[in-house]
Amino acid sequence: MFTQPIGVAHYLVVGAILFVCGIVCMTTKRNTIGILMGVELVLSAAILNFVAFSQPAFRVDQEASLGIDGHVFALFAIVLAAAEAAVALAIALNYYNNHSTIDVDRAQDLQG
């Protein structure tokens, strides 16, 4: 295990686990903040993938690695995710002001 060099696939596995955790978090949590945390996990899985794909030393076909493009993509994803989180929180606060709860199950005014 520790003698084998690490490859893109290893990173992809970690990313996949994060992704699945995020998806499960989004679907099972009843709390708005919890759902947002799931989203963060999914985004972080994607960023992890980008970073892994950018490293040529992790793979055989080095020339197909994303290089700096992957890094830039990851950076922008981080920034956008942060922005999205800010807005989502503002909306959650607004919702809380109107409903006094952040439980999405109680969001029943609209038929769903």
Partner: peptide, 30 residues
Amino acid sequence: SEAALKFALYGAGAAGVMLYGMSLMAGALG
């Protein structure tokens, strides 16, 4: 506010999935 909340949560989730898909696609195609 409920509409905005639902929109934001679903939208953020969809954007996350999309980004993950983009990472796979970009990675596989270099």
